[in-house]
Design a protein around this nucleic acid. Structure first.
Lengths: 137, 137
DNA sequence: ATAAGTGCAAAGCATTTGCTTTGAA
DNA sequence: TTCAAAGCAAATGCTTTGCACTTAT
């Protein structure tokens, strides 16, 4: 498994304030896709004085330094997940909002192929599948 | 080719005000993906008195009635395109912002398959490829 | 010491809404 | 005539920023 976010911050020489440590820790402990408000709520548990502006500034810094990736699921809020993990896409449960991560090499290959056919070299993509749970009954 | 947006509005019994006619016409004449502000700018040419709020209300109405589809390219603004055309996805030129529409049946099939494998029935998806133009030199 | 980071409140955008007036049916 | 739609401005929700203060290095 990859290094913790705290370690990665130190590794690139980021100044580690108490607030950044708290936010990094919260991110390390999150396996979902929290938005800024949610990160703020979780961080507040460890540091009741932290401000929402700091959360916003910190995730922006982390994103710029390649520590986080911003993902947007079309609800108007930005969400964050640790970057540098294996690449994956998202499937969103239409009813619960639950987000499932998956990776499919065929999709990746196909996307390259489509881009090439259109005369492009692929530099990125975003893909979200929306679905409803198959009931077994 | 599909009916004009104006016809489709009439077809579902929408009250056709002058403003809606103008916005529908602007949409019919657009082959790109304008956002609300851009639609407002184009509509203003035909009706200098139209208000931005009306543009927002109208695209929302059109979307709810299945006449438009909202697409978001991650720049914080919603964009619109005529719905009910053949399904397609988007490739965005990283440098110019140009949007190319494409349809690939293999992608569609693969998405269904992935969703099924995860225990879901696919109800929708969004996919944008980001790329840079292949230079021929 | 000093440049970078924080907190707070104010500002910014895209979008929505309350309310009064206008107009399509 | 009557109810839906328009116009305007104020409100909203997410995110950013200016400024004075604090802190990691």
């Amino acid at each position: 498994m990859a290094d913790s976010i705290i370690k990665r911050c130190a590794g690139i020489g980021l100044r580690m304030t108490d607030q950044r440590k708290v936010i990094a820790m919260v991110l390390d402990q999150s396996d979902d896709h929290p938005d800024a408000e949610e990160l703020f709520a979780r961080a507040t548990i460890h540091d009741p004085k932290i401000s929402l502006a700091t959360v916003y500034r910190t995730v922006k810094t982390f994103e710029e330094r390649g520590i986080l990736e911003k993902v947007e699921f079309g609800d108007g809020r930005a969400r964050y997940e640790a970057a540098g993990r294996a690449h994956h896409d998202h499937l969103i449960d239409e009813n619960s909002g639950e987000v499932i991560e998956f990776y499919d090499p065929d999709i990746e290959a196909l996307q390259e192929k489509i881009a090439a056919k259109l005369g492009y070299r692929l530099t990125g993509h975003r893909m979200e599948l929306i679905g409803v749970k198959l009931t077994s009954d």
